[in-house]
Design a protein around this nucleic acid. Structure first.
Length: 699
DNA sequence: TTAGGGTTAG
């Protein structure tokens, strides 16, 4: 970060940095609409221009009130005028003040309903205060209909809006996502202040039009009197949205020179920007420099660590935050519970759960959803259910988390029940819901129900099945041995690697070598340079006893210089990483490890765990095969990642998830290459991305 | 009058 430049140099370099943003590229990238030109015109009567824009959109305001002169003369003649004059202000003032009161009480819907009365009574004078309240209701409800109604009324009444009200109207359009109208409004404003600029730029950033936001900011920069700390906050968010550190750094420099970094909002935005742009060190630097660290500042830096997979650092910051005495909020707990899920730390998660309740956030939907996810992922589905049942409000993510949990526990019927209950309660399922419930059906062998749900996805819920749903169905059909149906399903869509892989697995299980070979070749054809595709092809050949063809694949591999790395698992214990390859005996405590593994194997068998034998590999003895097959779960158990040695589907699934263990590849490579090709490739160790068990991409 | 941080799957 170069922050030593003089201000004028910073300004010019900032402009240069922004000019580097190629409009064409950005328009393509962000699918921007036609270039937004900011007119220099000034309109003396802005409301007249709004009317034109309004009519251009095909909207027709109600007829203007007719002159009442004739009517009043008639009334005067009949002696009614005095009565009317008395009634008019009473009715109008009553409704208007009622609207204002309803908005104050946050009864926005009722306020807008009452506003309808104003529409049908032309003779009620509406004050700015009432319009302001109605605008507030529209913003709170994000009601486009409300915006049209209130704005229409303003147009009809021909009221001259002052700058404050113009900004409110602008904000109303921005908040309701009506950015085209907002742009027209902004363009036609005869007077603008920093609020007007910040509002429109903020709207552009919120709607993802980062490039337009930068362009407008540069225009604003020309008249720097309008630029304030809130502008920097918004623009830093734009840089974060673009994930471009260079404009972010320039903004940081400008903000420093203008003293804007003293604003806690700017600093928080900078912390967020640096972490989103991949520089957690700079994020931490900005955080450390903050004289006053607010809850949001702590949350932002914790979120930054969590985003980059630094779960332990995130947890450590969480405890530092606790020690600092800063109040934690529902954001803090949501994040930290998610971090605990990654760390598989029941102890910390329980503490966070207790803190959540103790500090009065026990009803927060997001934090509770994190808890449901945590408990269901770590073998405590009943705890997950308890948390879920006690949630006063649930959103689709909460339902998805629990359905997914039941599915992973092999409790498919309960997952389906939950899905049906969710629909009964009026919750709209999304593509994640269907993935969870289809996957649950798949793991529990509920093929008919799975197929029914799959068919209803688009028909009843208008959720178009994606590739992952088709993959799930291929797996489901494949498990049932319906290989031709699975093949036909793949043929009905654009096949993906995962679909062929699922079919290949089914073919191996059901010994359909011809179709399996075809699937493997398709897989091979979709990514010829990917080692994993050679491995599965090699696997299918050797599995079907076609050793010559398997040898040919090996030759191809050799010719292309692709090396197969042996399967490995690595584990971090107290910041020390331990790496194990298949059949590895190089660790100084190998003897103890294998004794432990044998104990685990014994305990597993006592719990009824029967290793799945692979009858396609004749030259591997049973002991070795069993060891290879369950390498990951045994390691996970022996290092305490799985609390008890049992064979519940969840625990096995978790161990595979942690160790990313690919059984077939391990077996194949250890069979074909034996131990002598096992080597430690130091360059692969950079996959220690999250410091937990992981496996290289080359599988 | 405008602003910063969070959940499911992949």
């Amino acid at each position: 970060m170069d922050i030593s430049l003089p201000l004028d140099q910073i300004q010019s370099s900032f402009k240069f940095a922004c000019s580097l943003i190629n409009p064409t590229v950005f328009k393509q990238k962000f699918r921007l609409s036609d270039e937004f030109s900011l007119g220099r015109r000034r309109c003396r009567a802005p409301i007249a221009k709004f009317r034109c824009a309004f009519l251009d959109q095909g909207l027709r305001p109600r007829p203007m009130p007719k002159p009442r002169e004739k009517e009043e003369n008639n009334l005067k003649e009949n002696g009614y005028l005095e009565e009317r004059k008395l009634k008019k202000p009473n009715l109008g003032v009553g409704i208007c003040s009622q609207i204002e009161k309803l908005v104050l009480c946050k009864r926005y819907n009722e306020a807008l309903e009452l506003f309808e009365i104003l529409e049908i009574n032309d003779d009620i004078d509406v004050s700015f205060d009432t319009y302001d309240a109605a605008v507030g209701a529209c913003i709170a409800l994000r009601s486009i209909r409300g915006v049209k109604r209130v704005f229409n009324h303003m147009l009809n009444s021909e009221v001259e809006l002052d700058l404050y009200m113009m900004n409110r109207v602008l904000l109303m359009h921005v908040k309701c996502g009506m950015m085209i109208d907002a742009r027209h409004l902004f363009e036609d404003m005869s007077e603008r202040n920093s609020v007007s600029w910040n509002t429109i730029i903020g709207g552009l950033v919120d709607s993802g039009d980062f490039f337009d936001a930068f362009r407008l900011f540069l225009m604003m920069w020309e008249d720097s009197s309008n630029v304030c700390s809130r502008t920097f906050t918004t623009m830093v968010r734009a840089a974060a949205g673009l994930e471009l550190i260079s404009p972010g750094q320039q903004l940081h420099s400008c903000a420093l020179k203008m003293g804007a970094t003293e604003d806690v909002f700017v600093s928080c935005a900078l912390v967020d920007m640096y972490s989103k742009c991949g520089s957690i060190e700079d994020a931490r630097f900005v955080f450390d420099m903050m004289p006053e660290k607010t809850t949001v500042a702590w949350n932002t830096v914790i979120a930054g660590y969590a985003l980059h997979g630094y779960s332990e650092e995130a947890l450590s910051m969480y405890y530092e935050m606790q020690d600092s005495g800063v109040k934690m909020d529902h954001f803090t707990y949501s994040m930290i519970i998610r971090v605990c899920t990654r760390l598989a730390s029941l102890q910390h998660a329980r503490q966070a759960h207790a803190g959540l309740i103790r500090n009065g956030f026990g009803y927060d939907v997001v934090a509770n959803t994190s808890l449901v996810d945590f408990y269901s992922k770590w073998g405590r589905i009943e705890d997950a259910r308890n948390v879920f049942d006690r949630m006063p409000r649930k959103n689709v993510v909460s339902w998805n988390a629990l359905i997914s949990g039941y599915g992973n526990h092999g409790r498919g019927a309960e997952a389906v029940d939950l899905f049906e209950r969710m629909v009964d309660q009026g919750m709209v399922p999304n593509h994640v819901t269907f993935l969870a419930v289809l996957s649950a059906c798949c793991h529990s062998g509920l093929s008919d129900r799975g197929w029914e749900i799959f068919e209803s996805m688009h028909r009843d819920y208008k959720v178009k099945p994606r590739a992952m749903h088709y993959t799930c169905m291929v797996e489901l059909l494949g498990r049932e041995g319906l290989l031709d149906e699975a093949f036909a399903l793949i043929g009905s869509v654009k096949p993906t690697i995962n679909m062929w892989a699922a079919l290949l697995t089914a073919c191996r299980v059901h010994k359909n070598f011809e179709l399996g070979k075809y699937a493997a070749e398709q897989l091979y054809g979709m990514g010829p340079e990917k080692l994993s595709n050679y491995v599965v092809l090699l696997n299918i050949y050797s599995s079907s006893g076609r050793l010559d063809e398997a040898a040919a694949v090996l030759q191809t591999l050799k010719r292309k210089g692709l090396r197969m790395l042996p399967a490995c698992t690595w584990i971090e214990i107290k910041k020390q990483q331990y790496v194990f390859f298949t059949g590895d005996k190089s660790h100084p405590q190998t003897k103890e490890i294998y004794v432990n593994l044998d104990n685990v194997k014994l305990q597993l068998s006592k719990h009824g765990y029967v290793p799945q034998r692979n009858n396609l590999l004749p030259d591997v003895d049973e002991r070795e095969e069993s060891m290879l097959l369950h390498h990951s779960e045994k390691l996970a158990i022996s290092f305490g990642l799985i609390s008890t040695p049992s064979s519940t589907p969840l625990q096995l699934a978790q161990s595979h998830r942690i160790c990313n263990d690919c059984h077939n590849a391990i077996k194949l490579i250890s069979t074909v290459y034996k131990r002598e090709i096992a080597f430690r490739d130091g360059s692969r160790f950079h996959y220690f991305k999250e410091g937990r068990c992981s496996c290289g991409d080359y599988w």
